[in-house]
């Protein structure tokens, strides 16, 4: 750069020879110089503003040298590789988890299905379905526990899935006790007329009750009466507490 820029330049010195021609040339030159200076300073201001602006917006990499950029690029590439590996790992983990998740969901659904079935059999869940409502009248109090138990067994044998007698749910361990006229089921008093609500095939159940020497015949023989109403929809809503096994543990 020219070191003598500030020191040099006295050409516009004293105009000792004021010839007209000379002055005119001078004036033209001055105009041109002024225009050039204006253009140059304008360019400088423009470039200055643009540079400041671009520096503002993008300071990190625009000024960096090639070797720095290469190093940064390497870093970024390595990072990308690592992140990709992480993504792959997470994907695998996610796949495994959702696999086990769906398995668990299926197992849960199955378990719930089983629980419902067992609950119906066991009497801990209310049930509805086709069946019949049987009313056993015993005005003389002549029916013994054995007779009622016999009726229950007959119904079971005919395919009854669940039943209740006078709001007492019959389960697998239900017992009929007491004496004729003062019957108890599972320790609860039941009184005539005994209303038995059964879920099962109504036709088959009704037939089983009416066979010669069967439940109906026995009751009538003892002075009572049996009326059977078949229905497409009966509700067994008496519940019995779940039997908690005291001694039995499940085997693996």
């Amino acid at each position: 750069m020219d070191d003598d820029a500030p020191a040099e330049g006295t050409t516009a010195g004293p105009a000792d020879q004021p010839s007209l021609w000379h002055r005119l040339r001078h004036r033209r030159r001055d105009r041109l110089a002024a225009a050039l200076i204006g253009v140059l300073t304008l360019l400088l201001g423009f470039a200055f503003a643009v540079q400041v602006r671009s520096n503002d917006t993008d300071t990190t990499y625009s000024g960096a040298r090639e070797e720095d950029l290469v190093r940064i690029l390497d870093d970024v590439n390595a990072r990308e590789d690592r992140l990709r590996e992480q993504i792959a790992e997470q994907r695998t983990a996610l796949g495994q988890l959702s696999d086990t998740d769906s398995q668990a969901a299926a197992a849960l659904a199955e378990a719930q299905q089983r629980a419902t079935e067992l609950g119906i059999l066991n009497g801990s869940i209310a049930a509805q379905g086709p069946g019949l409502r049987m009313t056993i009248e015993d005005p003389g109090g002549e029916l013994s526990p054995a007779n009622l138990l016999n009726a229950i067994q007959e119904l079971r044998g005919a395919g009854a899935e669940t039943m209740q007698v006078d709001d007492v749910r019959i389960g697998v361990s239900s017992a009929v006790t007491g004496s004729a006229g003062a019957l108890q089921i599972d320790g609860q008093d039941v009184a005539a007329p005994y209303v038995v609500v059964v879920i099962g095939d109504p036709q088959v159940l009704a037939t089983a009750m009416d066979i010669p020497g069967g439940v109906s015949a026995t009751v009538r023989q003892r002075g009572g009466d049996v009326s059977i109403v078949q229905s497409e929809e009966v509700v067994v809503d008496a519940l019995r507490p779940l039997d908690q096994p005291q001694y039995a543990d499940p085997t693996d």
Binding site: G38, T41, L42, L44, G45, F48, A49, V50, R53
Partner: peptide
């Protein structure tokens, strides 16, 4: 006067146009 004017106009132009380098 001209240089100052030129500088000012240039800065304003640069800020307004905001071209990318």
């Amino acid at each position: 006067m001209i240089p100052i004017l030129g500088l000012a106009v240039g800065v304003v132009l640069g800020l307004l146009l905001d071209p990318s380098v």
